[in-house]
Design a protein around this nucleic acid. Structure first.
Lengths: 165, 165
DNA sequence: CCGATATAGTTCAACTTTCAAGAATGAGTC
DNA sequence: GACTCATTCTTGAAAGTTGAACTATATCGG
């Protein structure tokens, strides 16, 4: 499958950078997962869901919106919200204007969990990342990450209409 | 828990960079996972295990070595190798010098799977990352990732002997 | 050699993620 | 309105992950 031409392999430097990337991103993800699992009793992604809700108007979002902004499938979100609901941190609400729809709303308990854990989480992110990088490097990182995202964005220009290009 | 002093929150720029980081790394990981799942029938991490084995002397590694270099728990590795063994891509071998030990060895079939999928994978990495960044940015990314890793390295200086510091 | 402790790897139960249906509602067309 | 198709969200089963308990072997200090 694919074309039969020899691919351009990675140069030595590229290989090193790629490994460093995999290494560092894995370590950071594991670190934050463990920190939040220990302190807040949930993995990083669940915490992210609560954060998104906390910043939304009326502290609620449609399931599909939330799934999109957290970049997970609706199915995964359904299960995740079920779990968070069991914890009492989120509540589902039906949508009046679209009877198929559901809102996930952050409860007061959920807000409280966030309030208690935000400091520890920010500190962890700081210690791992921002306190170790120069201002210049932070800026470089931002630029690089934006370039990467552009190339992977499902929402790229006409991404779903390739025949129009 | 933790100290009661107000943490240093993230500045606007830091917040943006942090989100860009999460966004981009998630997209890339998802992208590679899907590419390999589709083409090779396994997730990115499993592919990484095969790569590690392919580069080891005699194409085999002790379980603990492999777990360390892939940065996963031994438990997770046990399950993963069980699956790869079922696929016929890896075989377990007992270790003569330490009867507790096991080697995971890449089979010829495993090598073949790697040979067939390496081009597609490199191309995916290239398209997502290296073909989109300037030489300078690649270098910057490498530096930044190494700094990050240093701060998270479980193997930090005397990491497991904190009382000696 | 003995006993205590450490290490290698596996296994189990709980939890999370994925994938493929499926139920319900909405929207467009005639 | 009825038909068709799209969208929203959920469900259930299979696969993957985690953390703790467990087995077996090795190592250390007498």
């Amino acid at each position: 499958m694919g074309d039969m031409t020899e691919p351009r392999w990675l140069s030595d430097e590229e290989q090193h950078v790629w490994r460093a990337y995999l290494h560092a991103t894995t370590l950071l993800e594991d670190h934050l997962d463990r920190q939040l699992q220990r302190d807040a009793g949930m993995p990083h992604i669940y915490y992210g869901l609560l954060v998104q809700l906390s910043q939304a108007p009326r502290r609620r979002l449609r399931m599909t919106e939330l799934a999109k902004s957290a970049k997970i499938t609706r199915s995964r979100l359904s299960h995740a919200i079920a779990r968070l609901e069991k914890n009492g941190w989120v509540r589902r609400e039906t949508c009046a204007s679209d009877k198929r729809g559901q809102f996930a709303r952050l409860t007061d308990e959920g807000t409280e969990v966030l309030r208690q854990n935000a400091p520890g989480h920010v500190t962890a992110v700081r210690q791992a990342l921002f306190d170790r990088l120069s201002a210049e490097q932070v800026q470089q990182l931002g630029t690089i990450m934006r370039v990467m995202a552009e190339g992977l964005e499902p929402q790229g220009p006409d991404a779903d209409l390739p025949w129009l290009r």
